[in-house]
């Protein structure tokens, strides 16, 4: 994402830094993959619906081709011991990358200590109790937003 920011703001000058921050805020807030959302917004800003569609296609085409290729290779050779060994190594790193991202995001929560309880609750519900995301989200999001309003964003 930091790479996307420097390309869009600094090199191509499609958006000012402030516009980027505002749009990115929206894209983070709305459901859906952030960078996919961002490409829809930027495409839409320049060319309307067709711009959004083309921008989306441009973003996803190459990764999808690579994914299908690697997926096919995995299907064909995934059972070989050497490939399994390599994938185990990469998966261990991938797990670390995701945990580190979560911890980095968690640092923001130190500003709002009461909200940490919602992180723990959703982690517990989906990872240990295996509850489906939708009802968990519908139950926790209003509560979390209410606590944010009551204690951190100037009264409900």
């Amino acid at each position: 994402m930091s790479w996307a920011r420097s390309a869009i703001v600094d090199e191509l000058r499609w958006l000012s830094s402030e516009e980027f921050t505002t749009l990115f805020g929206l894209c983070q807030f709305m459901p859906g993959p952030n960078i996919v959302n961002l490409s829809v917004c930027i495409g839409n800003r320049f060319q309307g619906a067709s711009g959004a569609a083309i921008s989306l296609l441009g973003l996803l085409f190459a990764p999808v081709v690579i994914a299908v290729t690697l997926g096919a290779l995995y299907g064909r050779f995934g059972d070989l011991p050497a490939i399994q060994a390599v994938l185990r190594g990469i998966a261990a790193v991938a797990a670390g990358l995701i945990i580190a991202m979560g911890l980095r995001m968690a640092a923001d929560l130190l500003k709002w200590p009461l909200l940490i309880i919602f992180s723990v609750a959703i982690l517990w519900a989906v990872a240990f109790l295996h509850w489906p995301l939708l009802p968990v989200m519908l139950a926790l999001a209003p509560l979390s937003i209410w606590v944010a309003a009551r204690f951190y964003c100037g009264g409900a």
Binding site: L109, L115, L123, A141, I145
Partner: peptide, 12 residues
């Protein structure tokens, strides 16, 4: 603000 803790919990 209210969405942040849920996103953090889900990434972890």
């Amino acid at each position: 603000t209210g969405i942040v803790p849920l996103a953090v919990g889900l990434v972890l």
